[in-house]
Design a protein around this nucleic acid. Structure first.
Length: 748
RNA sequence: GCGCGGUUAGCUCAGUUGGUAGAGCAUCCCCUUGACGUGGGGAGGGUCACAGGUUCGAAUCCUGUAUCGCGCACCA
């Protein structure tokens, strides 16, 4: 027996060495797996690419643990496994992080540096983050294929993004147009509906006299240009007014002529049932204005200040102007009533800025527009059939082609689709995929590269210039399952490994990412990106609070690995948590599972030393080495009834957990194996074995030792996906040097 | 407003076709026995949020209520 088994298990002395062993073996890469796996059915998972904004947190650690369990389990079963790593440039998140850093250290803004210099800085930051992340992924023991690593902003992915953009434009799905968008005055960019965070705000709700009407509003500062007054056609209170009727009235900056509009979208119960509209700065108002082809006028500029239409208030910040406007209206006797109320205001997720809807010329993806899908493997959608992107997204899940775990999220997914509007994909930031569109005068070119030559423009001085905007980061992430496999080329990887088997990610990005992947994949390659979606929850602290810097309750995965080992860290993130539910984690929990690694280590010591001939001499009251060593015999059949019973119980357990592995119930499997190893095998069977081994009945003794050897093997094999390091290390002692445990067969 | 979850032992959670309530941790007591004190044995502790209903039987199914949390929409 190796001398190291005489000391407690030491993760620090083991883990890095074992990881190196695995990497050198080539078993992370499907092309260099053993023959059994090479011939096996493909099983692929893409790693949800962590943002290159810094370091990994416990949520990432949980993700890595769960995915590694899936991959290791399938690899042991003989599948041709691929787990593909990568990182995400996370456009707006990374840019704002670097901007803040530069501002803090050098007092400069990005505009002071210029686009080129600024991007160099971001790239350097991204590279450093990338290296940190890769190191952390390794530390967790991830059996991931580094040879295929990708980055959402590298050359290959850039080609995929541009191809996707052009293809979708040619299909009529990507268009440029003046539409209302979510403008973040703080970040100076548009953001998508999903990047909005609603915050509750208490404010004053004003009632103003507007000619014969009283209108309610929480935003007096937008009302300057309001010249349409809208009410429900069935509202008896306003039956005397007709649609299109003109009414002269006194307003903030003097007399105006208002037009009556009757529209069914008005809620008669709310306020007075009458409102004026500001189409440039409100979604709902924009829709009404579109319906009746009404004039739209901009009131607020892109920095959140009032435009000249505001007269004496022009140039003021909104917050500054509001009380002054109310004061003026009051002086004119136009304020009817004021009351307090609570509503939600839209803020930008990244910058916290108050969102100001604006009409802008931006790039969009049309989700409700029918198009001819070039090819389709999605059940129920035929190649060449007319569909919309919404229908693809809906159908992929409804048809069962994609299964979401836990199932309840399917409803949430459908609900999101129902409310989905066209997706604004252009951003006014510098870091990211620049929109692959070039302009020259009135000419426009969309493609993989800048057009060569002068173009047809008469103005020969002008050259082609690329669109200044970049794409929403989720545009490139949406291609992830196939851009990483070589698309748009028809590579062998793409044929073998797509669609991927499982997408494992947090439920918080179901809309951001999962739904967008379904959209992009359906549209561009006519298939689903994955067959199963497994959603995990948030990792919270021991008290159930979100981990955050301000609460100072962050548990760093690297700290836990250093103190208790990666195996213990992994197990603590698996046991006691089901899919879709948030998990609570405390340091004590991790500590507890370190004890389990050591327990397994000592179980091994006992079994090996016994098999190697260590027997207890009752007369001398000490351990002695007998001459007889018992080697593991895979074909051993002469079980005593007691051992046959133990064996049956073990086999039943393996059958049970194998089913549960297929059902993604890793928390159950982990717990059951933990319980069996410790409280059945060690506490009962090993204790019961001591007198048998020290006894004189050789037949009974041999049967028992054979059972101990077999059970230990089985336990170690079954636990390998969960705690790969300590099990691999033990296998080095009991596996007869045959091969690494990582490619051993899953026990049957 | 619409929708989705949770509510089981002090804590974290299991409980998968309805059949006398479980695990880990924590607590208390005992054990210094021949792998492991990062150990072993044992004990206490639950009206399964509440109220109805279905059933021979409900933590489990149905209805409603409370409470905590989450998502979406949105009020001009």
């Amino acid at each position: 027996m190796n001398q190291k088994f005489l000391k407690p298990y030491d993760p620090q002395a083991t883990e890095d060495r074992i990881y190196e062993l695995w990497e050198k073996s080539g078993f992370f890469n499907p092309d260099t797996l053993p023959e059994r796996n090479k011939k096996g059915e493909p099983y692929s998972i893409v790693l949800p690419p962590p943002n290159v904004t810094g370091t990994l947190h416990m949520g990432h650690a949980a993700m890595l643990a769960i995915e590694d369990i899936m991959v290791r389990y399938k690899r042991m079963q003989g599948f041709k496994t691929l787990w593909l790593p990568g990182t995400d440039h996370a456009a707006i998140a990374t840019q704002s992080k670097v901007e803040k850093e530069i501002e803090k250290k050098e007092g400069k803004r990005r505009q002071d540096l210029g686009r080129e210099e600024f991007l160099k800085r971001v790239d350097a930051f991204a590279q450093a983050s990338h290296d940190t992340i890769v190191n952390q992924v390794r530390k967790m023991g991830a059996s991931i294929d580094w040879s295929r690593e990708a980055f959402t902003l590298d050359d290959k992915r850039t080609r995929a993004v541009r191809t996707a953009f052009k293809t979708m434009h040619d299909l009529g799905l990507i268009y440029r147009g003046h539409r209302i968008v979510n403008w973040d005055p703080k970040g100076q960019t548009t953001i998508s509906d999903d990047e909005i965070v609603y915050k509750e705000e208490k404010t004053t709700f004003y009632y103003f006299k507007y000619g014969p009407f009283t209108i309610g509003t929480a935003r007096p500062e937008t009302k300057f240009g309001d010249k349409y007054v809208v009410m429900h056609p069935d509202d008896a209170r306003y039956a005397e007014y007709t649609h299109g009727q003109k009414i002269d009235l006194e307003w903030i900056n003097g007399p105006i002529t208002a037009t009556v509009i009757k529209d069914t979208s008005i809620d008669m119960e709310f306020g007075t049932g009458v409102m004026t509209i500001t189409p440039w700065h409100s979604n709902v108002d924009f829709d009404i204005a579109e319906r009746y082809k009404l004039d739209k006028e901009q009131i607020i500029d892109s920095y959140g200040k009032l435009l000249p239409v505001a007269g004496e208030f022009a140039g003021m910040k909104l917050s500054e102007a509001r009380p002054k406007i109310v004061e003026k209206l009051r002086a004119k006797g136009l304020v009817a009533k004021e009351e307090q109320y609570t509503h939600n205001v839209a803020t930008a997720e990244r910058t916290g800025g108050l969102i100001e809807p604006q009409i802008m010329n931006q790039w969009f993806i049309a989700v409700n527009k029918p198009f001819k899908i070039p090819s389709s493997n999605i059940p129920g959608i035929k190649s060449g059939q007319e569909v919309t992107l919404k229908e693809i997204m809906k159908h992929a899940v409804e048809s069962g082609a994609i299964k979401i775990i836990p199932e309840r999220f399917e409803k949430v997914y459908y609900h999101w689709i129902d409310n989905l509007r066209d997706w604004c994909i252009s951003r006014q930031i510098w870091y990211g995929h620049r929109v692959p569109v070039w302009y020259k005068g009135a000419e426009i070119s969309i493609g993989l590269e800048a057009p060569s030559g002068e173009g047809e423009s008469a103005d020969s001085c002008s050259a082609w210039t690329q669109d200044e905007d970049t794409l929403d980061t989720w545009f490139s992430s949406g291609l992830w399952t196939f851009s990483t496999l070589g698309w748009p080329d028809r590579t062998e990887d793409l044929k073998v490994f797509h669609p991927t088997a499982v997408l494992e990610t947090g439920y918080d990005i179901l809309f951001f990412w999962v739904a967008r992947m379904v959209l992009m994949t359906g549209c561009l390659i006519g298939d689903v990106p994955f067959k199963t979606v497994y959603l995990h929850g948030l990792v919270r602290d021991g008290k159930g609070r979100k981990m955050s810097k301000s609460l100072d309750n962050i548990i760093d995965p690297l700290d836990m690995i250093a103190k208790y080992g990666a195996d213990a860290t992994r197990l603590s993130l698996i046991i006691g948590t089901g899919p879709g539910n948030d998990m609570k984690l405390s340091e004590d929990k991790v500590k507890g599972y370190k004890n389990f690694s050591n327990k397994l280590w000592n179980i091994t010591r006992f079994v090996i030393s016994t098999a190697e001939g260590e027997r207890y001499d009752r007369e001398a009251n000490k351990a002695v080495f007998s001459a007889e060593k018992i080697a593991f015999d895979a074909d051993f059949k002469d079980w005593t009834p007691a051992d046959a019973a133990h064996l049956k119980k073990l086999n039943d357990l393996i059958a049970e957990i194998s089913t549960e592995m297929e059902e993604y119930k890793f928390y159950l499997v982990g717990e059951k194996l933990y319980h069996y190893a410790w409280h059945e095998f060690a506490d009962l069977i090993l204790e019961e074995s001591k007198p048998i081994i020290a006894g004189t009945d050789r037949v009974v003794m041999i049967s028992r030792i054979q059972f101990l050897l077999r059970a230990l093997r089985t336990i170690v094999q079954a636990l390998h996906p969960f705690i790969p390091y300590v099990t691999e290390e033990i296998w080095g002692e009991i596996g007869e040097g045959k091969s690494l445990l990582i490619v051993e067969e899953w026990p049957k």
